[in-house]
Write a protein that binds this DNA or RNA. Structure first.
Length: 552
RNA sequence: UGGGGCGUCGCCAAGUGGCAAGGCAGCGGGUUUUGAUCCCGCCAUUCGGAGGUUCGAAUCCUCCCGCCCCAGCCA
């Protein structure tokens, strides 16, 4: 990674604020609502907020924006913390909760009432909508807009005491029903919800809205830069109004950036939840999910995700990043960090007819980095190679095993195909070949070099394994735009390979350890299902393949 | 047809008046015991469009066009 972070408007503006001494030390925050699992879009926000704090020597908070208990749960609070840590970040201090500021927020609501800047409104939700007007027509004042301060205070206190049923009243700011900015048309500050909150239990029958809470939460925490997404730009005048009219201890500066969208991906929490609930996928952490937990289980390294977020840049223009860019970051990282190993997906028996003694081969674990060391592989005369790597006859483009032609067994000898046997259906069931070299790594003495190299596994020592080959969950570039998301699913997003055989050492793989299966791709030992008795590997991403696409 | 944003290569994205970075994708070629990696080369006389200011404009001004967001007691 480059020493100089690439330029973007966020860094430029924060740098300027710091240099002009408008702020002393940078404080940012990542403020998720615990109503779902974090996804790749959140990863972007996390890297932005924690990354900025890191770059400028500031600090970044983790704060749960838990103002809507009906949609939130402890499960999500736990998963979010785990995901942030896994991505490689540690928040400053304890985990924070908007709910721990509820009393302060309530006092500020009372303050606004006292200033004549907020009132209790009894309009029903439907009537309120009608009074709000439209994008092109101004709204009308609520008939309750001019209640006295005393009456408002009394009503608000009774709301707080739980005297009213859900939804019958709200507290509203008294701003401007004719504003061209809808957010300023007397927005709602508090609503009545007799709900049990995962943090505060039954202490509160009223809950602040996001709009009333968020800016003040940042002010309480001394957040200097509130980084958020573009859709909140329209809300900024409202946040500034609160900050200007309340005795808050600090004034945050909000800056908006464009959220991350990637092609072939859905990041709507509602839709992701649907995939889980409908069991289209095996859970929030299904390797096909764009959730952090899913990417993790898929074998995508945290460092690759971070690098991708950096590469993609941060700007204010909406766009859809080609998911190939993420995949490229994963390949790039894994190429450098994953040890090599061999796996035969569709085993085809290969008998070496002239191998006198089994060989013990010493095979390097990485072709370009000796620090990975090497491993010993037993090569007897009964092996498995992949069905795709053998043809009875083929043109010269085919660089694998062909009868009468030579190929190298990775890390071992060069062999030449002699004959093959077929089953009742006419399928090749066994290949007979002859070693034309006797020293591992050597070239044939007659000077006829093999054109290719193929992977293999000892039939005697190889381990049966389950391989889960994954592909993109969706078949269309913008599944979020589809009317029927389920119809856009990629029917081949998961291929279960039941009869694969892996080299013996792979049984000892640690869960979450990633290997490159040579000539195939990168595979991770499943976090939960992998055992030495029954190895299970998930495909993170295939190797770049410039051949099969054009040559079948 | 209210308000707020955004438009630089197929996809992201630097650049903020001095003569268009980089990444991804793609295309050639080389190396190679992974058809991988790696290496070399190619890939915007032009910045949504049209005018204007200037010695000089992607950057400043005017008009136009396109796309996104806002009418939850969601965040």
């Amino acid at each position: 990674m480059s020493a100089e972070p690439r330029s973007n408007f966020l860094r430029t503006q924060i740098q300027a604020d710091l240099e002009a001494a408008r702020v002393d030390d940078l404080v940012t925050r990542f403020p998720p609502e615990p109503n779902g699992y974090l996804h790749i879009g959140h990863a972007k926000s996390i890297t932005v907020n924690f990354g900025l704090a890191e770059q400028f020597g500031g600090q970044c908070h983790l704060r749960f924006d838990d103002t809507n208990p009906e949609k939130e749960s402890q499960e999500f609070i736990d998963s979010i913390q785990e995901d942030v840590r896994w991505l490689g970040y540690q928040w400053a201090g304890e985990v924070r909760y908007a709910s721990s500021y509820f009393e302060q927020l309530y006092q500020w609501a009372l303050y606004l009432v006292g200033e004549g800047l907020a009132y209790v409104c009894d309009l029903s939700a439907e009537d309120a909508r009608e009074y709000r007007g439209t994008l092109t027509e101004p709204g009308r004042d609520s008939p309750f807009r001019d209640r006295s301060v005393d009456e408002n205070r009394d009503l608000l206190e009774r709301m707080r005491r739980g005297e009213f049923a859900d939804g019958v009243r709200v507290l509203r700011a008294r701003i401007d029903m004719a504003s061209s900015n809808m957010n300023l048309r007397d927005p709602i500050l508090y609503r009545i919800r007799h709900a049990t909150h995962h943090q505060t239990g039954s202490e509160w029958p009223i809950y602040p809205t996001y709009d009333f809470a968020h800016g003040q939460e940042d002010a309480i925490e001394g957040v200097t830069h509130s980084i958020c997404t573009l859709e909140f730009e329209d809300h900024r005048p409202l946040y500034d109004w609160f900050i200007a009219n309340l005795p808050v201890p600090h004034q945050p500066r909000q800056i908006e950036f464009a959220r991350l969208n990637t092609s072939y991906t859905i990041t709507s929490k509602r839709k992701l939840k649907l995939l889980v609930d409908e069991q289209v996928v095996a859970g929030w952490d299904d390797p096909r999910m764009p959730t952090i937990a899913g990417l993790r289980r898929r074998g995508y390294p945290a460092a690759a995700i971070r690098h991708f977020c950096e590469e993609v840049g941060t700007s204010r223009s909406d766009g859809i990043v080609d998911v190939a860019m993420l995949e490229s970051a994963v390949r790039d990282h894994l190429n450098h960090h994953a040890p090599r190993a061999m796996c035969v997906m569709q085993p085809l028996r290969l008998t070496l007819t002239n191998l006198a003694e089994p060989l013990v081969l010493t095979v390097p674990n990485h072709p370009a980095n000796s620090a990975f060391g090497s491993r010993e592989l037993m090569m007897g005369n009964e092996l498995f190679i992949d069905q795709a790597d053998f043809r009875e006859e083929a043109n010269k483009q085919f660089k694998r095993l062909v009868l009468g032609k030579r190929v190298r067994l990775r890390g071992g000898l060069v062999i030449e195909g002699d004959s093959c046997e077929k089953d009742a259906d006419g399928n090749v069931s066994r290949v007979l070949a002859r070693c034309v070299t006797s020293v591992p790594g050597a070239d044939p003495e007659d000077g006829v070099k093999p054109k290719g190299v193929i992977q293999w596994v000892s039939a005697e020592h190889g381990l049966p394994a389950t391989i889960r080959r994954y592909d993109r969950l969706f078949a269309v570039p913008e599944p979020g735009r589809e009317d029927d998301m389920l119809a856009a699913l990629n029917p081949r997003s998961l291929e279960l390979v039941a009869g694969a055989v892996v080299e013996p050492g792979l049984g000892e793989a640690e869960p979450e350890q990633v290997f490159q299966f040579e000539r195939e791709g990168y595979f991770v030992a499943d976090r939960y299902d992998h055992t030495s008795e029954a190895p299970v590997f998930n495909m993170a991403i295939g190797l770049r393949d410039t051949w099969s696409a054009t040559n079948g």
